[in-house]
Write a protein that binds this DNA or RNA. Structure first.
Lengths: 214, 214
DNA sequence: CCGAAGTTGCACACTGTTGTGCAACTTGTT
DNA sequence: AACAAGTTGCACAACAGTGTGCAACTTCGG
């Protein structure tokens, strides 16, 4: 049964336009999380009406964005690890940066709203847990701050990362600069001095800021 | 001419209710910057219709909140200074914390929207400038990070402060705890290690975290 | 080139919100 | 008690956004 090759398989338009819509949504929602469907469709070079040919509702579109982004981040997170908790935190910083737009879009538009549980609940929770664990281990090893609970420190690191992402919207940064900023900000929140953070960065520059390393 | 004592001076209701509305707006808008006028009025124990007896429009209400908050912060900022840039940054952190709700409400609801210039333009710009100056001086003195431009560092500090404010919404903190968190986060972004930051905090605990010092 | 998939442009109903008008009521002040 | 200020509850218009229906058009693919 060659059911896969139906009379009309899939039109190339559809795929391209759908991708364009998701791209446009990422870009538009990053600046205005409450942007209208119309604005998104226009940014994709389509009509509002056409958008509804791809997604049944605004919520479905955003949901797609969110779960897709979460999947990418989760996959990347699972792929790269390090035994040294400090390096591991830096590593998380890098992979977060590499999915800036996905993350940004999802946090801003989903933080409040019915989709929140969908996102923060499943796909990102393990990442947060990993961060908390890293912080606790680093503190136990004397490599991180001990003056605040690990939970709080983890959230400060996450906040620092978001601030770095915001900064990237303001002043355009290269991929390397962005990665550096996110990592330095995170390690600063962890309690390292800027020289210590810089040392970590240089010591693992190949994995933390250079491209190509799969 | 005793024009001040007109036949009907001012009714005590009016003043109290107006204050209640502003308070309610602060509280409600902190959680949902897009909260409706109805929600605000209800939180104040009044009707939507009554609110319009105090403020001509939603924008006027928010504007009042914003300018009032900005004035308070600006006044507090002008009142407390320190020659040591590091201590000065910590000082800014403290005063920001003490006006959490005002700041929070204004940033969230005004960051995007027509009032943005009103706020970020005038009253808060000097605070940002002061921060940038502090960062530059601290870096020149070898007391702060030199790996990032002062502008960027200043924004990272501001971001760290906001993250700390967010954390306070999640887990209730006492006034002192909140002040400590904001200051530690800011100094971390500045490039200090957590022990250095803690040392600064302890050395100036009287002005940075204790109450009562006018 | 022909047919179907996809898009456009319009119209429409529905919802939530803002802001106003007005009569009836309650509350503060003298 | 009496008057006015303030509030309520309702009705209303205006606006922006979402989601749908449908006919005409354009584009893709065999």
């Amino acid at each position: 049964m060659t059911a896969s090759t139906s009379p009309r398989p899939v039109r190339s338009d559809r795929v391209r336009n759908r991708a364009a819509l998701l791209d446009a949504a990422r870009g538009v929602l990053r600046r205005d999380p409450d942007a209208s469907v119309d604005a998104i469709a226009a940014a994709a070079g389509l009509t509002r009406r056409a958008l509804y040919g791809h997604f049944p509702s605004r919520e479905a579109l955003v949901g797609e964005l969110v779960t897709e982004g979460a999947r990418r981040v989760a996959a990347a997170a699972a792929a790269s690890r390090d035994d040294d908790p400090v390096v591991d935190i830096a590593l998380v910083g890098r992979l977060v940066w590499d999915d800036v737009e996905a993350i940004r879009a999802m946090t801003l538009s989903v933080v409040r709203g019915p989709l929140r549980e969908t996102l923060m609940g499943d796909p990102l929770a393990p990442l947060h847990a990993r961060l908390v664990d890293d912080v606790a281990r680093a503190a136990a090893a004397g490599a991180a701050r001990e003056d605040l609970p690990a939970e709080t420190v983890a959230r400060m690191i996450e906040g620092a990362a978001f601030t770095a992402l915001d900064e990237s919207v303001r002043t355009p940064l290269t991929r390397e600069e962005g990665r550096r900023l996110v990592i330095l900000a995170g390690l600063g929140a962890l309690g390292l001095s800027w020289r210590q953070a810089g040392a970590v960065l240089e010591a693992h520059a190949d994995r933390l800021v250079r491209d190509g390393a799969r």
